[in-house]
Nucleic acid binder design. Structure first.
Length: 464
RNA sequence: GGCCUCGUGGCGGAGUGGUCACGCAGCGGACUGCAAAUCCGUGUACUCCGGUUCGAAUCCGGACGAGGCCUCCA
């Protein structure tokens, strides 16, 4: 089955045809590194990792280029640096903020079992490309210089607003944008702005300054993927103004009708039915969640909802995910798996239909459980690993549960041994008393007979 | 105010113009000394009102409700 993707540009699902099947090119907006990434930031990281894996499967691992940028120049970074490191020179403080935040982001992304993108370019390493784009825009009449700023001349682009479907007239009518006196048009946006001596800046034909918000993505996608490429992704909130302005810059600079053929946007996330915000106190960083939940549980929870739908992020959903993954580890945790099942690839190929994909996993799991299920078990494990699940050893996975219980392991093991002795003596009262004691500690026992020897064996884990 | 998305069973969550999503929970059974785990089986649905149609939860229109963007934001 052909890969189908929903294209924000045309608002419909289309067959994906790469410009060059030998080099399929994907660009995703990465983090602005000024603060810890939150669970909402994890969504595009996971969603586009799944797309990256699927593209590698369909076109070959070496034939997909996935670029996810690191934006390390931004006024939010400057503000954070000044706040957190008042003793340091600003540039040094900025470097500290960006390198610390970037390292934490990489650790978070790894813990979510995502593959590293092919390239993770930094904005500050592409100032020359940004300047070049601005020069092209000025030369072609799409940008102008005013009081040390360079601005994009929005009315110079007749079909500005096509991606977000906002006719220019409407936007101006309801404009809440910053109306600076040097702007020719209300919607014009900054490409380059002057920096004071204390602010970070780079030399340019328009004086020492720094780039506007949208320019870094135009510069980095151009440098690493070319003037036009296949897929551009990001959160739905970026459609306007960020992606709209990126499109304007890139298309006007290089004179093409399109920047990326397909634009994909993931939906938003709520926490326990409410908008996530610092003021509500429900702001969940990835790092904090990883303290309580395995990364695979976060990843799987994200996969339970289609990427374009809103997710309500709840503890209940996380607990269900953990339970499901426990079962899958129990059944297939030590199976290597040779390849993903075709049904999984098909489900994923339908615009990354992860809920359908999960239904296929359940079907494989149930088939593997039956007699002569070896083939299914191989495909089941292969599918899970393909999707970035089942990445730990079964024992490491099981240990996570036990680690979350504050109990004396040696004492628990001793009690279980005593119970086993009581059971072998058919002393049910004593056996049940010990089980009650362990239940009171918040533990659940599972008895099993060894299928070969018939020997009784008891395992334990914290109740949830 | 402008633009956009969405409304499915107790909960989560896909999909489709006319037989099943799937998972969790529940219920019944097997297994068990009793449980837990596991296995087998099982009920409940498509916000409302019109329209198109032989037939709509699925298409069209309207109402109501929820969310998002328009300002930093995944």
């Amino acid at each position: 089955m052909a890969l189908k993707l929903y294209n924000t540009l045309t608002r419909d699902k289309v067959d994906f045809t790469p410009i060059d099947p030998q080099n399929v090119r994907l660009y995703v907006c990465g983090p602005t590194v000024y603060d810890l990434a939150h669970i909402g930031n994890a969504r595009p990281v996971i969603v586009f990792d799944l797309l990256f894996r699927l593209l590698r499967h369909l076109y070959g691992a070496s034939r997909v280029t996935y670029v996810r940028n690191i934006t390390d120049v931004d006024d939010k970074i400057n503000a954070r640096a000044a706040r957190d490191f008042p003793g340091l020179a600003l540039n040094e403080a900025i470097r500290k903020v960006t390198s610390d935040t970037e390292a934490q982001f990489q650790a978070d992304a790894d813990a979510l079992m995502t593959l590293r993108p092919t390239l993770q370019p930094r904005a500050t390493e592409h100032i020359a490309e940004m300047v070049e784009i601005i020069e092209k825009l000025i030369a072609s009449g799409h940008a102008y210089v005013a009081e040390g700023h360079v601005l994009f001349d929005v009315p110079s682009m007749p079909d500005y607003g096509a991606l977000s479907r906002r006719p220019l007239d409407d936007m101006i009518a309801g404009a809440r944008v910053d109306v600076a006196p040097y702007k020719r048009g209300d919607m014009d946006f900054v490409l380059w702005k002057p920096s004071s001596d204390e602010e970070p800046g780079w030399p340019s034909p328009w004086g020492r300054g720094r780039p506007g918000w949208h320019l870094e993505c135009s510069a980095m996608s151009w440098k690493h993927l070319g003037e036009t490429f296949d897929i551009h992704g990001g959160g739905i909130d970026l459609v306007f103004p960020h992606h709209e302005n990126e499109v304007a810059q890139t298309r006007c600079a290089f004179g093409h009708d399109v920047m990326a053929n397909i634009w994909m946007h993931n939906g938003f996330l709520q926490v326990e039915g409410e908008k996530m915000s610092k003021s509500l106190g429900n702001f969940l960083t990835i790092r904090d969640l990883l303290a309580d939940w395995p990364g695979e549980v976060l990843r799987f929870t994200m996969m339970k909802t289609h990427y374009r739908q809103p997710i309500d992020w709840t503890v209940k959903s996380l607990e269900e995910s953990w339970k499901t993954l426990d079962d899958w580890y129990w059944l297939a945790g030590d199976v290597a798996g040779s390849r993903p099942a075709e049904a999984v690839i098909e489900a994923l190929s339908d615009d990354l239909n992860t809920p359908k994909t999960i239904a296929e996993l359940h079907a494989l799991r149930n088939a593997a459980q039956r007699a002569d299920g070896a083939v299914h078990l191989d495909l089941f494990a292969g599918s899970l690993r393909f999707l970035g699940l089942l990445q730990e050893t079964p024992s490491a996975w099981a240990a996570r549960r036990k680690a979350s219980a504050a109990v004396d392991v040696a004492r628990v093991e001793a009690l279980i041994a005593a119970r086993l002795a009581a059971r072998n003596a058919r002393d049910w009262a004593e056996s049940d008393r010990i089980r009650d004691e362990l239940t009171a500690l918040g533990l659940v026992l599972k008895d099993a007979k060894d299928p070969v020897t018939g020997e009784l064996k008891t395992t334990w884990e914290p109740a949830r």
